[in-house]
Nucleic acid binder design. Structure first.
Lengths: 331, 331
DNA sequence: TTGTAAGCGTTATCAC
DNA sequence: GTGATAACGCTTACAA
């Protein structure tokens, strides 16, 4: 089995409490002793036993992340970022891909210091079904939950985009995105578009709203093909995601349409762009780094026992770049 | 803080050791007492403390999964399956997205019962850099590791496909896949193709090997477009992944080529197909369910302390369906 | 500056 | 059948 502080104590010829202090870098231990002990610990390949430590400290320096759908690529970048941030504060993140209730139960048994839940179909889940003594933070749509929640204002993001395009003179603005009911996060974006266009639903803008059945590149490609073959007078497109936008750009280049000369594009996006597309994209959204930072702070705060705001809705930002030009600019 | 067995003991008016036995459903406790205790535990929302239990039992009923690249969608289905299988045996899986070394260190501190590592750029990693007392199982390419490894024979899979197509008379067989050096798993597939075609490298089959720079749908789409516009005499394609195949099918339908009349397709694939494509695909590969089952068994086995085979390479299977027809069948 | 001892929540081994 | 009690590996007063 594993090496314990008692083993180290024997080797070093000191008591095991001294070892404990030395390893925790306590000022109560003389430098030379400390160094000697550290060295022996290293040699023996000592790994502190979390179980024992968290038993006495009632703290495990661990954050449990509930991530029911490993399949989804979107939040994975966010998780990675959060993980890095927490690591700096010497916290470890552990993920569970189980159903929310059982994941929370597991993390309670493990006495993690806080739980971060990536909400998805939270609709099914009511707070009453959750048993926890560990503080919980949600990321995603705030619905029937009383737990603190951090979310991105997707609706406002799309509105920002529409308004900007209108300001620079565009009249025929289209939206390409996922309108299916299954994903409330996507739906928010569509609602933002409707609101900005002063309509109630997609049917009032038959030619301008192109629903996709997913968020992949080819969904965007085909939506754009449909849109642009039928409607030659569209001058601007708002895209629901980065991948959709990549598809849209593919379509425009095949149709020999030039961005932004023939068409302005603003893409919803949280992720920093790595690909080098033909144009630098204009985007709206909250950058992952900011989301991660907020979540990180909130997490550390609730661990300290501080109450945080019930609900933090992050404001999106508009970043205008080459893919966008005023209407008529090239005439 | 959490409810402990002592709290339950007080409420039930018994000693806490009786509570412990009752909760573990020991035959040493009378039925009525047991029921009473269970009920109180339920009411109080008791959650057993893993730290305390694993401290005395030296077992946490937990498997640590090292998954450095949350970004990749491919193995996520596999992880979900493994998770389900282990749950049946009342094991919990916890994932870490940290670097392999530190993830392993973390899991050692948590005293998990076994560690499953999803190997990727294992190249960098030598066994000597790993400190562990917990048994480790690798999934992925076996390279310089002495730990037991489970892997899929991708090379053989593609060979099977080539041989089958040759048997049914195809001469001009093309391969669409990712040849970049970064992903050794993909490279294996290409090597399988080369070997089956009796060549050493791609350059010997200039028109038949179409490298993609990824495994997404649109990569397949564009590769197929390139391939089929230049080479009208190709009669069969082997695709390196399911998504690539979807793209290929999109391309063929745009080019008014009919599968399998004008073109036979066999797709590498581990994942059970959910989409309903125009044709039912012929596939080669090891189904995820089988991979998951093997990993599950191996894991349980090494937990018991049984040595398992150093290396288990799973044999792919060929499933021929509508997307494949003998050469000349429709003439 | 170092050692001793109590206690964290649980299981397991005894006695009763 | 049930109840004390030791032990798991560690941290932390407190004693030396």
């Amino acid at each position: 089995m594993g090496v314990t502080i008692k083993d180290i104590a024997k080797h070093a010829g000191v008591s095991y409490s001294t070892v404990s202090k030395a390893l925790r870098d306590s000022p109560l231990v003389k430098k030379p002793t400390k160094i000697k002990i550290m060295k022996i610990a290293e040699e023996l390949g000592y790994q502190p036993n979390v179980a024992a430590r968290s038993l006495v400290q009632k703290k495990s320096y661990t954050i449990g992340v509930v991530w029911p759908s490993v399949e989804r690529i979107a939040p994975s970048i966010l998780i990675t970022k959060i993980n890095d941030l927490l690591e700096e504060k010497s916290y470890t993140t552990l993920l569970s891909i189980n159903k929310v209730e059982s994941a929370i139960a597991t993390f309670n048994r493990f006495q993690v210091d806080a739980i971060l839940v990536f909400g998805e179909n939270k609709s099914v889940l009511s707070d009453s079904s959750i048993q926890t003594t560990v503080p919980i933070l949600y990321y995603g749509l705030k619905e029937n939950s009383t737990y603190p929640t951090i979310d991105v204002n997707r609706r406002k993001a799309i509105k920002l985009a529409v308004n900007y395009l209108q300001e620079i003179g565009h009249k025929k603005i289209a939206f390409i995105g996922d309108l299916s009911d299954v994903d409330p996060l996507q739906k928010e974006k569509a609602i933002g578009f409707f609101e900005a266009m002063n309509v109630k639903q997609a049917s009032e803008l038959p030619d301008l709203v192109i629903p996709t059945n997913g968020l992949e590149v080819h969904d965007g490609y085909h939506a754009a093909k449909t849109l642009l073959s039928n409607n030659t007078d569209i001058t601007a497109i708002i895209s629901g995601s980065y991948d959709l936008t990549r598809g849209i750009l593919r379509a425009t280049s095949e149709l020999a349409l030039y961005v932004p000369k023939d068409l302005s594009i603003i893409s919803y996006d949280n992720i920093p762009q790595s690909d080098n597309l033909e144009v630098t994209l204009s985007t709206v959204g909250v950058p992952v780094t900011r989301i991660a930072k907020q979540i990180n702070e909130a997490l550390l705060s609730i661990i300290e026992g501080n109450d945080i705001q019930d609900s933090i809705i992050l404001d999106p930002e508009l970043n205008i770049a080459n893919s966008c030009a005023p209407f008529g600019w090239y005439d």
